[in-house]
Design a protein around this nucleic acid. Structure first.
Length: 261
DNA sequence: AACTTGCGCAACCGCCAGTCG
DNA sequence: GCGACTGGCGGTTGCGCAAGT
């Protein structure tokens, strides 16, 4: 038998936190700062284990937490990061500082996983990665171009560093190009054109720059893009745009504009 | 109105890694 | 080096509520 868990101790309360308990915990943390959770139950009289106190603080009471609906931008970012990092919710959360890893995990499990099939999500996100990230000299995405903000805390900073290391392994292979025309798109795989129609209901709602027939993709003929040749990536993109009800997408960056236009 | 079903989310569980004596 | 302890993380559970019948 392993050692007993703290929450197995007699008298330890489980279940939802009451407002009174929240007040006690917040008051204590405001006075002493987060950390040393072991001492929290002992010094506050809370009949909760230290782990429960820490979780309650980090997932619910911590200042700056944004609750409520996820924006299309956040949604896209989660999908994108999940495809690169897998279920590393803490790492993903480091790029959405106002969201907790628990929130992101819940949102993924209850919304995004259903919306986007596994393979589809992967492909969509490869598309998004191409647009979110600048690349370094050898084609690796530059994580610094991701909208990671407010990385000043040590936890978030170290997570961001971990992501940077993970991203090093993500490289682009050569030989594929993609071009987009307004209302339709075509992809080129190893010199072979495959065309898939993009039946935009309202093409003008997308932020096509200028009046050029070619959207300003962030990569050009002389750049390389990793795409699985057995897929129709832009068909996936099409589904993304139509099914996810993303109102406006900047084709150049892949960013959901979320009412910016 | 009563009951059932499905969903969202807060909280718990178990494992792991780091630290300390 | 070793074991105890703590904090962090990802997976899972179960309660409460809304929607459907």
């Amino acid at each position: 038998m392993g050692r007993s868990l703290c929450c197995d101790k007699l008298g330890i309360k489980k279940g939802p936190w009451t407002p009174e308990e929240d007040i006690v915990l917040v008051s204590y943390v405001q006075k002493h700062g987060p950390g040393n959770w072991r001492s929290v139950p002992a010094n506050t009289g809370l009949m909760r284990c230290s782990k429960s106190c820490r979780l309650r603080w980090t997932n619910y009471l911590r200042p700056g937490i944004k609750r409520g609906n996820f924006t299309p931008h956040e949604e896209g970012l989660i999908v994108h990061l999940q495809s690169m990092l897998g279920n590393k919710w803490a790492a993903i959360a480091s790029y959405l500082p106002q969201r907790t890893d628990n929130d992101i995990k819940n949102y993924w499990n209850t919304h995004l996983k259903k919306k986007i099939g596994k393979n589809q999500a992967e492909d969509v996100c490869h598309e998004l990665v191409s647009r979110y990230c600048n690349t370094d000299q050898i084609g690796n995405p530059d994580v610094s171009t991701l909208p990671a903000s407010n990385l000043s805390s040590t936890t978030y900073a170290s997570s961001a560093e971990n992501i940077s290391r993970l991203l090093v392994g993500w490289t682009r292979s050569s030989g594929n190009q993609v071009k987009v025309d307004q209302g339709s798109c075509r992809s080129v795989f190893n010199q072979e054109f495959t065309t898939c129609t993009l039946p935009l209901k309202e093409p003008t709602s997308f932020a096509l720059q200028e009046s050029s027939s070619e959207a300003p993709f962030p990569f050009h003929d002389d750049e390389n893009l990793r795409l699985e040749t057995e897929h129709q990536p832009l068909t996936v993109l099409e589904n993304w745009l139509l099914d996810e009800a993303v109102g406006q997408v900047d084709i150049a960056t892949g960013l959901c504009l979320d009412g910016m236009y």
